[in-house]
Design a protein around this nucleic acid. Structure first.
Length: 876
RNA sequence: GGACGAUUAGCUCAGCUGGUUAGAGCGCCACAUUGACAUUGUGGAGGUCGGUGGUUCGAGUCCACUAUCGUCCACCA
């Protein structure tokens, strides 16, 4: 038989590449052309076209691919659109560093704009290929024919179009604002691309006229001519707002003005500060409020300017101690706190220390009403809030909605211009004082804005520009909005919120309805992958890093996918270690061998004969129904881990350990095959390769990937699911109402009785419950009928009996004691039952022992019945 | 300063709207195994679910307070 050729252990390497090739060539990665099928789409968050795939990407791809394969099998026209991101600052700094490592001193100067762009382009093309192949390695079933790139010509058209629309709507404006300037990368950095590092720096206090002021940055203080204090600070009550005084300062005397502003914290330092509006965001705001002068002190190169007099041209780091020295000589240094700790802002990308500067930049206004939304003109901020608040967009897990709203509340205008070269260039042209906003040059003598756009400005268009916008292509009409955006929670603000912004604005403007203009319906946020100690994996500590590609090589893609998905929940970080992956590799192998065994026992007959089913067959078929239902339900609700675990447990613990064992004695090949096929289907989204490889043997000529997702077969409901618990729940619900209406004591007694009488017959027969209760007392239903009826209405239709409460009181303790005893017996009974339902025990244990256990069970049952009768007697 | 998350077996983690005796993997102990599988099977030990109080007939699950760890946001003159 052909089976003998199948190797004993599954070696992933021998199958994965050829299976992927088969899928790709079959065309099944593309969504079905059948327009009657409901569309389902996921836009892959594009990995940066700089490096290689890391575990974050692997997690993302695994989760998305599970969802898309599931939906595809369910019969949706499933689109999974892949792509890469040009990642402006990140890429440019990587390439510049490479060139510098290669000996080039200043690549920007030496290569010029076009030369550097060429170098970056070449680098990006190479790494794009690497990324593509790695995405394939993960088994990702995305439609490569629709691959997109955030810096393609088509994308550039979309970006320019959006810029123009927003400009014409007055949403984009140019203005002098304080921005974070990165002297290292020579560009601005957005607020949320900053991170703060703790730094210990000397904290100086200087005499400034009659005041003492403190600073850790004396080099900014040259132009300071305002002192600010809180209006309510009693210490300085004698000074009036606007009052001036003379003060000796670094380079001679200055005339200073007193300003009262609530931004000053009276508790901090001396409660008085001088301000440097050009180089501090808070100071800038104070200066705006009071219309104060602003002067630049530090140049864009990080060196002091003319205003610094003798210090001009010095880098700030060098100048600082010298300035302090001079002030000390002048007798103006009051004291130095050497243990002062404060935060410095650095770039999230390049780690350069920020220098706030006032610069002309392009901004997106987030407060101007400009979007026609549900009959009103709303601002970007308001639309961002409404989409989530009205549940048009659902965030999983929902606790991130709170974070999202908090972020929006604090949202300021978005600075979208960057002074780097790698990126979409701002489509604005200047000639003298004239300015035009358009993609192409208006003619000779016009010069284009030197700046490029923030990378997120193009990324925000990802969900719909990839489908052809601004053209109204069939894909755009069909697949927008996408169904799910899956990404890490760390870029909720960077990207997710911006996509909502871009999509709602652009698509509403293009005539789409509110429902069609959101970028996605669900947002699924996964956590970060950490090492076994819970630390972030970082390149600087390679021993903590797990490279997904190494793991694929060693354990196979299916094992990686499982280990990234099982045991992880939305929004929570997960630890990953090699042993875990090895564990799932074992499972993959188990599937292989279990299937091999099944195939050795098939007889070519696939028809299940209902008349020939053993108890075991019926059981496994019933269980299969339950598993289908559970797995489908979990997947629909993004509980991927639960779904995976369910099918894992079923296959290993029930199908292999139990049903296959029985099959060695008495087998039903048709059932064996049916259950295997169904289980393989359920497992396929999680572990596409091994399931497809087995399928090829099991059902030659067909492809599992395009098979139908299983549905429950009502014929296989041989064992009714126990709905007893459901009945009890109804009863309890009734008691809860009764408690509210008739009082706690009454409810407690009824509960005690029910516990005591909790046998199936009693719970099944509602009327019987009521009768028994009725025997216990003579509470008149005519008096309390309404309450009682309400209490039991969840499980009793008609109530025309008397309900007893009053006479129970004396038997309380006795009932309690017997109830407890019954509970103990029940526990014992259940443990016996468990033992007897253990297949291995039943199969292997000697007959006498099993008989003995059965006898014990019978005895226990009799005891329990006796006690229950007693309890009833007590009731009477 | 504000918010959020975590705390469950030796380790890493599940546990969906409160409900039969709280689960898995790894590790540990004992035994088994040349007929699918040592990447195995069977059995076992191991948990007062961080603490205190509350709601409830019933709490790992809900509420309040609290401890420890972690993350994010804001401020830091």
């Amino acid at each position: 038989m052909a089976m003998k050729e199948i190797p004993k252990a599954y070696t992933a390497k021998d199958h994965e590449d050829s299976l992927y090739k088969m899928w790709e060539e079959s065309g099944a990665f593309a969504p079905s052309d059948d327009m009657s099928k409901e569309p389902y789409s996921i836009m892959m968050p594009p990995p940066n076209a700089t490096g290689t795939l890391h575990l974050g990407h692997a997690t993302m791809l695994a989760i998305e691919d599970i969802l898309i394969r599931f939906k595809r099998m369910q019969g949706f026209a499933a689109l999974y659109l892949p792509g890469t991101d040009h990642a402006a600052i990140a890429t440019e700094s990587v390439v510049i560093k490479k060139l510098q490592d290669g000996g080039m001193k200043n690549p920007r100067e030496e290569l010029g704009r076009d030369g550097l762009l060429d170098a970056i382009r070449e680098f990006v093309e190479n790494s794009k290929n690497t990324i593509r192949n790695q995405v394939r390695k993960m088994g990702t079933s995305c439609d490569w024919s629709r691959e997109r790139y955030t810096f393609s010509d088509e994308m550039n058209v979309a970006v320019n179009e959006l810029f123009k629309m927003m400009y014409e709507d007055g949403l984009i404006y140019r203005g002098g604002r304080i921005v974070s300037w990165d002297p290292k990368m020579q560009t601005t950095v957005a607020d949320d691309e900053l991170e703060y590092l703790e730094e210990k720096a000397p904290f100086y206090t200087f005499q400034y006229g009659p005041f003492q002021i403190s600073t850790s940055r004396p080099e900014t203080k040259f132009g300071d001519k305002y002192v600010v204090m809180h209006p309510d600070d009693k210490r300085y009550a004698k000074y009036k707002n606007g009052e001036t005084f003379e003060a000796e300062w670094i380079n001679g005397p200055v005339t200073a003005t007193i300003i009262k502003d609530e931004a000053v914290d009276p508790e901090f330092g001396t409660g008085v500060m001088t301000i440097t509006p050009w180089h501090d965001a808070t100071d800038f705001e104070i200066a705006q409020r009071h219309k104060l002068d602003r002067e630049q002190v530090i140049g864009l190169d990080g060196c002091l300017m003319e205003i610094a007099g003798e210090f001009a041209g010095m880098p700030i780091g060098k100048a600082r101690p010298k300035i302090v020295e001079k002030l000390k000589e002048k007798g103006l240094l009051v004291n130095v706190d050497e243990n002062y700790v404060h935060n410095v802002a650095v770039s999230y990308r390049g780690k350069g220390i920020m220098e706030p500067q006032i610069m002309k930049q392009w901004f997106v206004d987030v407060n101007k009403p400009a979007i026609d939304w549900k009959g009103k003109q709303l601002s970007i901020k308001e639309v961002l809030q409404d989409t989530v608040r009205s549940k048009m967009i659902k965030i999983v897990p929902d606790r991130f909605e709170k974070t999202y709203f908090h972020w929006i509340d604090n949202l300021r205008d978005w600075c979208i211009s960057r002074q780097i070269w790698w990126g979409h260039r701002i489509p604005v042209w200047y000639k003298g004082d004239e300015m035009k906003v358009q993609a192409d040059s208006p003619g000779t003598d016009w010069a284009q804005d030197e700046d490029t756009l923030d990378t997120w400005f193009s990324s925000q268009l990802w969900t719909f520009s990839t489908l052809g916008w601004p053209e109204k292509t069939p894909d755009l009409m069909r697949f927008t909005p996408s169904n799910c955006l899956e990404t890490g929670y760390d870029i909720l603000f960077f990207w997710v919120a911006r996509m909502i912004l871009g999509s709602t604005y652009a698509l509403r403007k293009s005539g789409f309805s509110e429902e069609k203009s959101i970028p996605f319906k669900d947002v699924y946020l996964h956590g970060l992958i950490r090492d076994i100690h819970g630390k972030k994996m970082s390149k600087s500590r390679p021993e903590t890093c797990i490279d997904p590609l190494d793991m694929i090589e060693k354990y196979g893609t299916d094992a990686i996918r499982l280990s990234l998905v099982i045991g992880s929940t939305a929004g929570n970080d997960m630890r990953l270690y090699e042993e875990k992956i090895a564990g799932y590799r074992n499972f993959v192998n188990k599937i292989w061998n279990g299937s091999r065994f099944v195939m050795m026992n098939l007889d070519g007959n696939d028809e299940i004969d209902p008349a020939a089913l053993t108890r075991a067959d019926k059981w496994i078929l019933t269980r299969l129904n339950e598993i289908i239902k559970t797995v489908t339900d979990h997947l629909e609700n993004y509980r991927l881990s639960e779904a995976g675990l369910t099918v894992y447990d079923f296959f290993w613990g029930e199908y292999c350990d139990w049903y296959l064992e029985i099959s060695k004695v008495q087998k039903n090949p048709a059932v064996l095959k049916h259950v295997l096929k169904t289980t393989l289907t359920l497992m396929h989204p999680f572990m596409p390769f091994v399931t497809e490889a087995i399928w090829a043997e099991l059902c030659p000529g067909t492809m599992l990937m395009t098979s139908n997702w299983p549905v429950i077969n009502p014929d296989y409901a041989y064992f009714a699911e126990s709905d007893e618990m459901g009945r009890i729940m109804d009863l309890i619900a009734g008691i809860r109402v009764l408690r509210a209406e008739a009082g706690v004591e009454a409810a407690k007694k009824i509960h005690a009785i029910i516990i005591a009488h909790e046998d199936t017959a009693l719970v099944n027969d509602k009327a019987d419950v009521i009768k028994r209760l009725a025997n216990l007392g003579q509470l008149d239903i005519k008096e309390n009928g309404e309450k009682i009826e309400k209490a039991f209405s969840t499980f009793v239709g008609d109530l025309e009996i008397y309900l007893p409460l009053a006479d129970l009181i004396d038997f309380d303790a006795e009932i309690k004691r017997i109830t407890k005893e019954i509970t103990e017996l029940e526990n014992y009974f259940a443990s016996l039952e468990k033992k007897l339902s253990n297949k291995a025990f039943v199969q292997n244990a000697p007959e006498e022992i099993i008989k003995k256990e059965r006898t014990k069970m019978d005895e226990t049952q009799q005891k329990m019945e006796k006690l229950k009768k007693q309890l009833l007697e007590l009731g009477k």
